[in-house]
């Protein structure tokens, strides 16, 4: 029997106090390269949020109704990856049909997402913590929004600090890592605010 953690607490905790990027380091690869540009960051962050919410729900159903009954949990990694790839693929087609404008701003980021560790990471956390369906969805949505928030903030900071004089060896990724480190420290400060740890 998994004990019930209030989904609302879980939602805010996964955005702020346990931000998937700043405390679990998930989704770093695209994070560093895309955050150069504010507009792309917004698009990618939104895409991650949408995909993460949907895949969390679908993976939960697959886990509960396919993998567990058939005793195939050892295959879960492959199955989850396939679920992610399929959701991304379907979403891409749906968005393309429904709204070409949205496709232009969001769709181009979708292929990047299949190999974004944040998605698989959140799903594996969901599996290990044995969340129920509601918790899985709120955790997925919260983690996605947390990722979006982090990349938006970083992109804004980078835009401001781009012209600043930085030691040659630290230029580019080096100073970005330090910036992320400060953001992570700032996010620790949220812990008192929501009274979760």
């Amino acid at each position: 029997m998994p004990p019930l953690i209030n989904p609302i607490t879980l939602f805010f905790a996964s955005i702020f106090t346990s931000n998937i990027l700043l405390t679990n380091f998930l989704g770093m690869c695209s994070f560093i390269s895309i955050s150069k540009d504010w507009k792309s960051s917004f698009g990618l962050g939104m895409a991650v949020t949408v995909v993460l919410t949907i895949t969390a729900a679908v993976s939960w159903l697959v886990l509960r109704f396919v993998l567990v009954p058939f005793g195939m949990e050892y295959l879960s990694f492959i199955i989850f990856i396939i679920v992610i790839a399929a959701v991304v693929q379907i979403l891409e087609m749906v968005i393309d049909r429904a709204s070409p404008a949205l496709y232009l701003s969001l769709g181009i980021f979708l292929p990047l997402i299949t190999v974004n560790c944040a998605i698989l990471g959140a799903i594996l956390f969901m599996q290990i913590r044995s969340y129920n369906f509601i918790q899985a969805i709120t955790f997925g949505a919260g983690s996605g929004l947390g990722w979006w928030l982090a990349i938006m903030l970083l992109a804004a900071i980078r835009e401001r600090t781009e012209k600043n004089p930085v030691p040659a060896g630290l230029k580019g990724p080096g100073i970005t890592m330090i910036t992320i480190g400060f953001m992570a420290m700032a996010f620790i400060g949220f812990s008192g605010m929501i009274a979760v740890q």
Partner: peptide
């Protein structure tokens, strides 16, 4: 005994 922690059981 199992109870709710912050992140999970």
């Amino acid at each position: 005994h199992t109870g709710a922690g912050l992140w999970g059981a």
